[in-house]
Every structure is written in structure tokens, then in C-alpha cells.
Design a protein around this nucleic acid. Structure first.
Length: 508
RNA sequence: GGGGCAGUAGCUCAGUGGUCAGAGCAGGGGACUCAUAAUCCCUGGGUCGUGGGUUCGAUCCCCACCUGCCCUACCA
């Protein structure tokens, strides 16, 4: 049995959960569910990133301690993921004790290995912002871009990570593991950045206290990104004294699959592998980079256009239609458009007209021609061959981290089944073997499709499963065996019920 | 400024150094009526961003440019 450890980035609690977060998380969830379906042992991790200046300041504005603030924010993410049917096995918060221990263990190790050194950090500091700016970020005349006030040239003692020492090793790693970072376009981007020269980076702060203290010099705290990345190790037991946890770490690392957005390539594809190397660990095995959902060509975020929250969308369209749209409409890796029109178009064509309608028509004809009892599939049905091909295509796509392709392939089976019904026209024929054969085959397709859509629409999968009279749950089936043609048992009651996905009007 | 990604049919996207560049949706025509005005069949002549170059031949290789976007110390 293979292991599949998949992670999302941990989300910075400064922002409430939005559709961008949901996009990453739903994709990770679908991949996790796919791997469970094929029998892999899965560990699916998400969580929240809770340290840093912005959080501290946000808390202060509310008159709260930082921890009080984050204690209020983390559940908003947990609730959002519960509402989206996210099946994460763990939810990590960087304010947890297990994480503090892991961060101190890892960075202590890097320190021991000689890759951290103290040096003065000098930069342009804005007192109002309480942060440094790079020279080219400043407005003309050396003004803070935020306040428009003069900045000061300040200096403080900081610890630096010797990132520059890893340039050659990183390049070697990229050469030897050409599929570690995917897609290739993002890999090239990261690699060319590395080849362009790496500078050491300041990894601690004395100007703020909301962070994890540096074990060898407690008046410093770690810069939030250095703390955050380590969550991927924390969750599998790194830094624990417990032998069982240590074994768990040995079992799961480095065969991880990090799913990230393209804006954090640098942290995950440059800093993170280097940090692992510096700590004497293998770099992460897989980093899959995805693009963004765009609203009218602009990036989606909390601050701009959108007050679109995941829960708004769920209320409006339902969980599974939203999941389906997020997975089906944008290839994982490039940017895609997100729009109400897009959701509705996809909903009507794929879910209502094709899948939902297929279920409805089959249930009705089984009711009128077979007394509502599902017949056995036809062994030699043309659909059997289609199902085999579709299983192969969908499996390959899911395994390659391409939900869009997997779902596209799956829907070919749905379309072919609608076409097959048109050819045979069982509603015109008298009850008998021919009618039984085509309806049984259509039910068999619905059974297989229910299994294949578990990663995308677990609730819908269950409902189809139940309506065609099957026992158990589709997510408990195991591929590829369960998708072998002929698995639908004759003699089960098929329920005729209201449309699975009522058609929606296109909104103005 | 430096680095990078992207620009293919109305829309969302595939795709390959060489027979007519593809799919889904939308649109048009037809059939049917079991089904959610659903389904099925037929129907896609788009300078493959612009201008050069390499080549017997490029949408796919190289160069420049245009446009959009990203990174350049805390937004998936």
C-alpha cells in the first residue's frame, strides 16, 4: 500500500477564508479522496499560519491578545472546510505546542549545522509600519509607500539563513528530480530564480514578539515564513520525543505532495528545499503549483472585488456544484476564470442535463418497464468498453494531479450512456431482455460514475449510490476492482426522486 | 530596473516541427418525447498576440516587440 501525504499551504489568519483558499483546499481534498479510493494510506493536512506582525497588529486593533485573535480566526477556516466537505486528517495551527517544538528543533538543527549566523541587518525602516522596506519599494524621495513619510536607515542584529550555500545543491536537486516541481513551467521559473543567484535571508526579528522564540537567543523570534513552512514536518511528528511520532515522521517524509499557489513558489521551491537540506532532511518529493482564479482577469483576494465567501457560494449553489466547478473548470496549474456565469453554465450542462437527467430518465424507465427493480447490466454492452477506457483515462489524470482532465473523461461515459439510451429507446419497447440489458447497463454506468466522482462530489456520489439501490458507501469502494464492468447486482430497488440538480436560470 | 508566466474558434480550454489545428459549452439545422424545455444526430473555415529569423516546411524552435499577470522579505 502506498502512502500519500498531501498538504495545502497553511492560511494566514489575517484574511477570512475566501474562494482562493477554497480552490487550493478543494483540489487537495479531491486528490486525497482519490488516493483513498485507490487504497493508498492518506494523510491530508491543512491549517492556519498565525504568527507575525500583521496578526499581532490586527489583534491589537481589536483589543485582543494575538492568541485570542487567532483563536477566533482558526475556527472560521475549520468551519469553512467542514462546509465544503473537506476531508483533512489534521488541522495544524502554528500556535500549537507541537509546532513550537518542531520549529525549534529544526532551526536548532540548522543552527548546529552551521547554516545560521548573526549579522546586522540594515534597512529602511518605517516606524509607522514597524517594518523594513527595500530601497526600490520606496517612493521617490525615500518615502514609505504606505504612509508617505520618510523612512529611517536602521540597523539591528539578526540571524541569517545561509541560503546562498545551497545554490548548487538546489540546482543539482532540480536536475536530478525533474518532476519534483510541477508543472514544468513553474519548475523553470523556480530554477531560473535559483540560477540567478541566492542571497542569505534574515530569519529572525527582535522588533516583534508574536512568534516562536529562537532557542539559542530568546529575545529573537523567527520570521513568520520560517516558522510556517515547518508545519509540514510538525504534523508528521518531527521534533517529538515520542518514539512513535519519530517513526511516523520516518514513514511519511519526504514522500509529501505540497499543493501551493504560484505566488509562493519562492518559499516552497527555493527556501523550503534548502531548509530541509540544511537540517539534514530530504527535500519534499513533490511540489505541485497551481494558478489563480481570476475575477474578470484580476486576482481574487479579500481586499478587492469580492466579498464572495465559500459559504455564500455553498448557500447559492450547493457544496458539490461548487466543488465541481472549482475542479472542472480550471486546469490545475494555469490561471482560470471564476464567475457566476461559469458556475451556472457548468452546473446546467454537466450536472443537470447530463448526469442528473441520466439518473432521472433511467429511474423512470426502470419504474415503468421493470417495476422499479434494477436489472443486471449487459456483459457485452458497448458501454463496458467505454467504461474501461474512461477508468483508465480518469485514473491517469487523477494520478497526475489533474482533476479537470479526470472529470472531463468521466463525463464522456455519462454522455455515451445518454446516447446509448437514444439508440435502444427502452421506453418504446415492451419489457423484456433487451430493455433489461440497456437499463442494467445504464445503472452499471451510474454505479461506476458514482465511484469515480467521489473525489469531486462525495455527497452526490452517495445519493446516486443510494437511489440505485446499492448498499454501503461509494467512498468505501476500492479501485480499480470496484469499477470492473458487471458489478451492479440485479434485484435492487431503484428510487425515482426529484432531480438531483434542478436546472438553474442563468442570472442576469 | 531585474526575473518569470501567459496570449489558439463567441466562451472555457486541449494540442503537435509536416496529411483538412481539436474538445466541451454557446449558436444554427434536424430527430425524439423516457427524462430536469432535458437527450440524441448533423453543423466549427479560427491571420494559432505582432514583426522578423532558423528550416524543404512552424501555431508548436530562436530573436524582438505588444498586451495581461506574477515574483523581487509575511494574500491560495
Amino acid at each position: 500500500m502506498a502512502r500519500f501525504y498531501i498538504t495545502t499551504p497553511i492560511y494566514y489568519v489575517k484574511d477570512a477564508p475566501h474562494v482562493g483558499h477554497a480552490y487550493t483546499t478543494v483540489n487537495a481534498d479531491a486528490l486525497a479522496r482519490w488516493h483513498r479510493l485507490v487504497g493508498d494510506e492518506v494523510l491530508f493536512l491543512t491549517g492556519t499560519d498565525e504568527h507575525g506582525l500583521k496578526v499581532a497588529r490586527a489583534a491589537e486593533e481589536q483589543g485582543l491578545t494575538p492568541l485570542e485573535w487567532t483563536n477566533g480566526m482558526a475556527p472560521r477556516f475549520q468551519d469553512a472546510w467542514a462546509a465544503l466537505d473537506i476531508s483533512n486528517d489534521d488541522f495544524i495551527r502554528t500556535t500549537e505546542e507541537r509546532h513550537r517544538k518542531a520549529v525549534q528543533a529544526m532551526l536548532g538543527k540548522i543552527h548546529d549545522n552551521g547554516f545560521i549566523y548573526a549579522a546586522p541587518y540594515e534597512g529602511f525602516y518605517c516606524v509607522g509600519c514597524e517594518r523594513y522596506y527595500a530601497e526600490d519599494e520606496l517612493l521617490d524621495g525615500g518615502l514609505c509607500p504606505d504612509h508617505g513619510k520618510p523612512v529611517e536607515l536602521m540597523s539591528e542584529e539578526n540571524y541569517f539563513f545561509r541560503l546562498s550555500a545551497f545554490q548548487d545543491r538546489l540546482i543539482d536537486w532540480y536536475e536530478q528530480q525533474p518532476e519534483a516541481v510541477l508543472p514544468a513551467s513553474k519548475r523553470n521559473e523556480a530554477l531560473s530564480f535559483i540560477k540567478g543567484g541566492l542571497h542569505d535571508i534574515s530569519i529572525t526579528r527582535t522588533s516583534i514578539s508574536w512568534g516562536i522564540e529562537v532557542p539559542w537567543d530568546p529575545k529573537h523570534v523567527f520570521y513568520v515564513w520560517y516558522d510556517a513552512l515547518i508545519n509540514y514536518l510538525t504534523a508528521i511528528g518531527y521534533g517529538s520525543d515520542d518514539p512513535a511520532e519519530q517513526q511516523r515522521f520516518a514513514d511519511w517524509w519526504p514522500a509529501v505532495h505540497h499543493l501551493i499557489g504560484k505566488e509562493i513558489i519562492r518559499f516552497h521551491c527555493v527556501w523550503w528545499p534548502a531548509m530541509c537540506m540544511a537540517a539534514g532532511l530530504e527535500p519534499p518529493a513533490h511540489i505541485q503549483v497551481h494558478g489563480w482564479l481570476l475575477l474578470g482577469g484580476a486576482k481574487m483576494s479579500n481586499s478587492s472585488v469580492d466579498r464572495i465567501t465559500p459559504s455564500d457560494l455553498i448557500d447559492e449553489y450547493g457544496v458539490d456544484p461548487i466543488r465541481y466547478h472549482l475542479l472542472r473548470d480550471t486546469p490545475l496549474g494555469t490561471d482560470g476564470e471564476f464567475s457566476a456565469e461559469g458556475i451556472v453554465a457548468r452546473y446546467n450542462s454537466d450536472l443537470a442535463n447530463n448526469l442528473g437527467n441520466l439518473l432521472s430518465r433511467v429511474a423512470t424507465v426502470v419504474g415503468s418497464k421493470c417495476d422499479g427493480i434494477g436489472p443486471a447490466p449487459e456483459t457485452t454492452s458497448r458501454l463496458a468498453g467505454v467504461a474501461t477506457e474512461v477508468l483508465a483515462e480518469a485514473s491517469a489524470a487523477w494520478n497526475a494531479g489533474q482533476p479537470q482532465q479526470a472529470l472531463e473523461a468521466t463525463w464522456r461515459l455519462v454522455r455515451e450512456t445518454n446516447a446509448e439510451l437514444e439508440t435502444v429507446e427502452p421506453w418504446k419497447a415492451d419489457p423484456g431482455p433487451q430493455v433489461d440489458a440497456v437499463l442494467g447497463s445504464a445503472l452499471e454506468v451510474l454505479r461506476i460514475v458514482a465511484i469515480l466522482i467521489v473525489p469531486a462530489m462525495p455527497g452526490t456520489a452517495r445519493e446516486i449510490w443510494r437511489r440505485i439501490g446499492l448498499e454501503g458507501l461509494p467512498e468505501d469502494q476500492r479501485l480499480p476492482d470496484s469499477a470492473r464492468w458487471g458489478g451492479y447486482p440485479a434485484g435492487r430497488p431503484v428510487e425515482k426522486a426529484p432531480p438531483l440538480f434542478p436546472r438553474r436560470k442563468v442570472q442576469a
